[in-house]
C-alpha cells in the first residue's frame, strides 16, 4: 500500500488530481477510467476540503492510499474531519437528470458522478477517520 499526505486545503485539490492521474497510469487504466477516477477523486477531495475542513475552520490532511492487485486498483482517502458519509444523501435519480436545466437543483451532482464513475465507491468511519474508498477494475474494455 502506497501512501501520500496532502494538506486539506484547496491548493491540494489540483495536486491530488495530478497524483491520481499518475496512479491510474501506473495501474494501466484506460483513458476513460482514468478520467472518471480523477473526477471522483476531485469531487470527494473538494468536499473534504471545503465542508470537512474549511467551513468549520479545521485543519487536517488528506492521506491518499493506493493498492493494486492484478484485478483492481483501490484508492483510499483518509481525513480527520467530522464523520461524513457521502452516500447518506439521496442522489439525483433518472427523473432529476432528465429535468430541464431551468428546473434543476444545483447540488448533488458531484457525488452522483463519483458513484457513477468508479466501479465501486464506499465510505467507512474508522476511529477518528473518514475513509472514502474508490475501486477501479483493471482490463475493462470500454
Amino acid at each position: 500500500m502506497n501512501s501520500k499526505t496532502f494538506p486539506g486545503t484547496v491548493e491540494s485539490i489540483d495536486l491530488i488530481r495530478h497524483y491520481i492521474s499518475e496512479i491510474a497510469q501506473s495501474a494501466g487504466l484506460d483513458k476513460k477510467s482514468s478520467y472518471n477516477l480523477k473526477l471522483a477523486a476531485d469531487e470527494i477531495a473538494t468536499n473534504i476540503v471545503l465542508y470537512g475542513y474549511e467551513e468549520p475552520g479545521l485543519e487536517g490532511n488528506i492521506e491518499v492510499l493506493d493498492e493494486q492487485t492484478e484485478e483492481a486498483l483501490t484508492v483510499i482517502f483518509e481525513d480527520t474531519s467530522a464523520p461524513f458519509d457521502p452516500l447518506a444523501r439521496e442522489l439525483p435519480d433518472e427523473e432529476d437528470l432528465t429535468k430541464p436545466l431551468e428546473e434543476r437543483q444545483i447540488g448533488g451532482l458531484g457525488i452522483f458522478l463519483t458513484v457513477k464513475g468508479v466501479d465501486d465507491f464506499s465510505y467507512e468511519r474508522v476511529g477518528e477517520k473518514n475513509r472514502n474508498i474508490f475501486k477501479m477494475l483493471k482490463g475493462r474494455v470500454s
Binding site: 473526477l39 469531487e43 473538494t46 444545483i106 451532482l109 458531484g110 458522478l113
Partner: peptide
C-alpha cells in the same frame, strides 16, 4: 477537466 462545479 470539468467537475460538477463546472457543470454548475
Amino acid at each position: 477537466f470539468l467537475s460538477s462545479a463546472g457543470l454548475r
